[in-house]
Design a protein around this nucleic acid. Structure first.
Lengths: 185, 185
DNA sequence: TAATTGATTAGATGGTTGTCTAATTGTAGT
DNA sequence: ACTACAATTAGACAACCATCTAATCAATTA
């Protein structure tokens, strides 16, 4: 959440040639807006705009001196961000608000009729597994089912209960012993 | 040169919400284009486009598997770039191709008439110093000048040779002893 | 106090780019 | 061989953003 906007602001700030160059110049020594405009061959408002974006990202800071605004690079902030990139849990956290089951739902939706029955069994393993996980979810954990019960439930999904049953075993979603089946959770 | 485009490509690649999220997802585990499209609620061509940009920046790599393209994050590259940011000479190098005298020239141009004489002496210290450095450059290093010679040369710039002379001393651009003047280089 | 100067804000414009649909390529399964 | 499917490429459109000019603000100098 905060991590995302944080990093995004940081990257956006430096993802522009002129701003990157400004950072480079300020890394050598602080400069006034007017000077930067000359060095970069840009108008002052444009430089002001860039500096504003860099400042929002925390990368530069202005101090007033006379009626100049002297901008300097905040190397501490830069180092902090670089270290966050090196931290092993920063990037994975960016996917926190992603619904990791969206793909499963999409696949399921693609292979299902409006009434919830399957149009067919997917040929691709990746998608077959999704469908089978769905099938497995029709059964309660820690409960034993006879093959007859199993087939009855599976037939709500698709006529080819044999393939479904075989898949459930093959993908280790269910286990069998003595003619009884149960979910492996 | 190469450093600039390198870094720029890196920042640009990650300066987009969806691409940043893709990096986050791939940081958890490799995924196919189709899956990413579902997870991000985007079309496959769009995801392909983003992955292409990330790949150009060296941040992801694809391996073919069936007719899927499984993309994975190149953490080595990420670490390498983060360390470059932490290196003390990376940023200053970004300003290598900047003409550091552009400001001086602009100031000089602003205060000069077409014939090269000064319209006036700048009030701002920062600009006065630029003009004075220019004045100092009219003299040879390692050579002594009498005050008469000094004034003659300075008068080519401006009538107020006294102010110029005082400024040169004050800003330590020239030194005086025994009625003689010389550049301090 | 008036005038000058540096910086910022407001508003307009052109270029970049994220996104989609349609078409193409290449691979797998019938 | 033919069909189906995942990925990419091509092309079009819309949103965003870098840039400029004009206007405003702030602070120093005359």
């Amino acid at each position: 959440m905060t991590t995302q906007t944080d990093l995004l602001e940081f990257f956006k700030a430096l993802a522009e040639p002129k701003r990157l160059k400004i950072a480079g110049i300020l890394a050598q020594s602080p400069h006034a807006v007017e000077e930067l405009a000359s060095l970069l061959q840009l108008s002052e408002p444009t430089v002001s705009h860039h500096l504003n974006i860099l400042a929002r990202a925390g990368l530069v800071r202005a101090r007033a001196e006379g009626h100049y605004s002297i901008y300097e690079l905040r190397t501490d902030r830069l180092e902090y961000m670089a270290e966050r990139l090196l931290a092993k849990d920063t990037l994975p956290a960016l996917a926190n608000d992603v619904d990791m089951h969206a793909y499963d739902r999409a696949v399921l939706h693609n292979f299902s009729r409006p009434d919830g029955r399957l149009k067919s069994l997917p040929a691709q393993r990746k998608k077959l597994e999704v469908v089978l996980r769905h099938a497995a979810s029709l059964f309660k954990p820690n409960k034993r089912y006879s093959e007859k019960e199993l087939n009855t439930t599976l037939s709500r999904l698709h006529d080819d209960t044999a393939s479904l049953r075989r898949g459930l075993i093959e993908f280790k979603l269910m286990q069998r012993a003595n003619g009884q089946y149960w979910r492996t959770d």
